[in-house]
């Protein structure tokens, strides 16, 4: 296990370098002159001044040197300052990550629970009407644009029915630390989390259905039936446990898509997370923040993939570590 872990960690190195390189280039090739914001035009905007600023910022160095220096600072958490708020980029991001993680976490849990349940149900009722309905619903789930689904839910639940708040994460009327505050946060989270989870719920349901169908035909399931175990035990103990293993890999592969989804879902529901910070930074041409969000979200994806890999190896004894 230890050797497997070490190998996985070593495999991360080129990925981290690649991700940081792309984040760096994203900032480097941003249009406009990066020295402009450091120069006060009322004092005098001359070519010499710009040259001085360029030198100070190290922009006169060759690209690899600039990247190396930037990388050195980045691993210490120094991602520069926001052009808009003038606060350190890392602070802006770290401040908002918990909100994004909460949204993503809720969405993943919902997608896992409902997706797997529906997938298993569909497999056990193969070729019945209910199976066809689930299949078509799953297709619809992966086809609806999530932001539109969000708009439609706002229209229905916040507009027509007036049940749920449409924007933000918490209400000022609910003081933090009280039961009210928890209920309030949940009420704010229901719609964004549902919208974010629908795509994965649907695709995992389809995946789980075929995984389950495959497992049901295995010899060990037949053996379990043959030795007279109840259908319940056969399905839940023997079949489901094995069919659920591939879902872990699926989970790992989906982290990037879920993060991608959070960018637009936070935009629709005005959620105070990293995604909205990033999208707003794109609109206001706040390049250091754009770079920071790219980097941090990619690191989160890497961490997610890595965890899924390890979990997979732990759960499935058939996987050899070395």
């Amino acid at each position: 296990m230890q050797r497997y872990l070490i190998r996985r960690v070593i495999a991360l190195v080129p990925l981290v370098i690649g991700v940081t390189l792309i984040s760096f280039l994203l900032m480097h090739f941003a249009p406009g002159d990066p020295t402009a914001i450091y120069i006060d035009p009322t004092v005098g905007d001359t070519a010499e001044m710009r040259e001085i600023v360029r030198e100070r910022l190290g922009l006169d160095q060759p690209l690899p040197v600039q990247y190396a220096r930037w990388f050195g600072r980045a691993i210490q958490g120094d991602l520069g300052f926001s052009f808009v708020s003038h606060r350190p980029v890392i602070q802006e991001i770290v401040h908002r990550i918990p909100n994004t993680l909460m949204l993503v976490g809720a969405a993943v849990l919902m997608a896992l629970f409902l997706g797997l349940t529906v997938g298993v149900y569909s497999a056990l009722n193969q070729y019945r009407t209910s199976d066809y309905i689930v299949t078509v619903l799953a297709f619809i789930g992966v086809s609806i644009p999530n932001f539109w689904l969000g708009l439609m839910m706002i229209l229905l639940f916040s507009g027509t029915l007036g049940w749920l708040p449409s924007v933000g994460m918490r209400d000022i009327m609910a003081p933090p630390g009280t039961v009210n505050a928890v209920v309030d946060t949940l009420r704010h989270m229901v719609m964004p989390a549902t919208v974010l989870s629908v795509f994965h719920m649907a695709s995992w349901a389809r995946y789980q259905r075929s995984a389950m169908l495959e497992v049901i035909r295995q010899d060990y399931v037949r053996t379990a039936r043959a030795k007279g175990l109840s259908e319940r035990v056969v399905i839940y103990r023997h079949a489901l446990r094995n069919a659920a293993i591939p879902v872990i890999t699926l989970l790992g592969m989906s982290v990037a898509t879920i993060m991608s989804g959070s960018f637009i879902v936070e935009q629709v529901f005005a959620g105070p997370g990293m995604g909205r910070l990033g999208v707003n930074a794109i609109f206001s041409r706040d390049y250091p923040v754009v770079m920071g969000v790219t980097l941090m979200s990619s690191i989160l994806v890497l961490a997610g993939n890595f965890t899924a890999d390890i979990m997979y190896a732990v759960v499935d004894p058939r996987i050899r570590y070395d």
Partner: peptide, 14 residues
């Protein structure tokens, strides 16, 4: 692999 790690939608937006 690297391209798959970076949330695609955000990269496209940027």
């Amino acid at each position: 692999d690297v391209m798959l790690c970076i949330p695609r939608f955000f990269l496209i937006l940027a």
